[in-house]
């Protein structure tokens, strides 16, 4: 394998890309629009987010925490007559306390989508920057930065969360700090690895010889060239974050009962897998649909952002 592979392609793509920085976005959008799967996913995600956030204004959505214990575990599309008085219609059935599953899923989606996207952005930002800087600067800085990552991996996360919740109580910022603190580590390792390998390539050396600043090199050349891996790993981080949120809520951090999130609904469903499978199936369907569209959108974005793709 040639270690200097691009001998025959003289023009390094990088300077060229800097100049048409603004049109890159527009090009990408054009390419994305041609990708039907990605566009469907985008619309689905938008619809999902809108539904979950505009929930309080939507009619016909039941109170997610109203219990009718005598109407528990009803199937989808049933109407139950509670001894409490009202007759209740369940579109996706009722849970173990006679609450409306559909409504709980939508309300849970609000929590999960917020946590999923915000905490992922936190870990994405920290992870990419940290990894890129460590890889690009190299030497002792890199060694020190990566040992910090190792230490953070090894510390007993459970205890840290227990201590923080005891001293600060159940607060939203703490949830993001705790999730962000664990989820960026692997991202940093991956990005650093990619940057270490990229920075020996010609176009980076060319950019350096052109006198480009370090920040410009990192942001304009190194990060864009690892964008494929970053997008893929980001879409993998979202489900991990949503699941972590459910674990943290058991430690008293984050959403507390009777409120639900997708993670906690799936956990409840897993425990009742035999007796009441719909408690597992419906929340999982919403969770899976969201993740699928997120991933297809991610793949589409990756293709769209890559200028070389169109040549294929």
């Amino acid at each position: 394998m040639p270690s200097t592979p691009t001998a025959s392609t003289p023009a390094p793509p990088a300077p060229d890309r800097v100049e048409k920085g603004t049109s890159l976005g527009r090009d990408a959008w054009h390419r994305l629009r041609k990708n039907k799967l990605a566009m469907c996913s985008l619309w689905f995600l938008l619809a999902m987010v809108l539904t979950c956030y505009l929930l309080p204004f939507l009619p016909l959505i039941a109170d997610p925490n109203k219990t009718y214990p005598d109407l528990k575990s009803l199937g989808p599309f049933t109407t139950g007559e509670s001894v409490k008085g009202p007759s209740v219609f369940y579109s996706l059935g009722s849970d173990y306390l006679g609450r409306d599953i559909f409504s709980r899923i939508l309300h849970g989606g609000r929590v999960s989508l917020t946590v999923g996207f915000l905490a992922t952005s936190v870990s994405l930002t920290i992870g990419v920057l940290y990894g890129a800087i460590a890889g690009f600067v190299g030497g002792r800085t890199d060694a020190a930065m990566m040992r910090v990552v190792d230490i953070l991996y090894a510390l007993p996360f459970l205890i840290i969360v227990i201590i923080l919740t005891t001293y600060f109580g159940n607060q939203l910022w703490l949830l993001f700090v705790c999730i962000g603190a664990v989820e960026w580590l692997t991202m940093a390792r991956i990005v650093r690895g990619q940057v270490l390998s990229l920075k020996k390539q010609e176009f980076i050396e060319a950019a350096q010889s052109l006198g480009l600043g370090n920040a410009a090199i990192i942001f304009r050349h190194l990060i864009p060239n690892t964008v494929g891996t970053i997008i893929v790993y980001t879409t993998l981080t979202v489900p991990a974050v949503m699941r972590l949120e459910a674990i943290l809520s058991f430690l008293g951090l984050g959403v507390q009962p009777p409120h639900a999130s997708w993670g906690s609904l799936i956990k409840e469903g897993a425990d009742r897998m035999i007796s009441d499978p719909s408690l597992l199936v419906f929340p999982s369907l919403f969770f899976a649909a969201t993740l699928f569209s997120l991933n297809f959108l991610g793949d589409g974005l990756r293709d769209a952002l890559d200028p070389k793709t169109s040549k294929d």
């Binding site: 993998l236 699941r243 799936i266 469903g269 897993a270 999982s284 899976a288 993740l291 699928f292 991933n295």
Partner: peptide, 10 residues
């Protein structure tokens, strides 16, 4: 993706 959607506890 299916493998990713289904947590280990499921």
């Amino acid at each position: 993706l299916l493998g990713i959607c289904l947590p280990t506890f499921v």
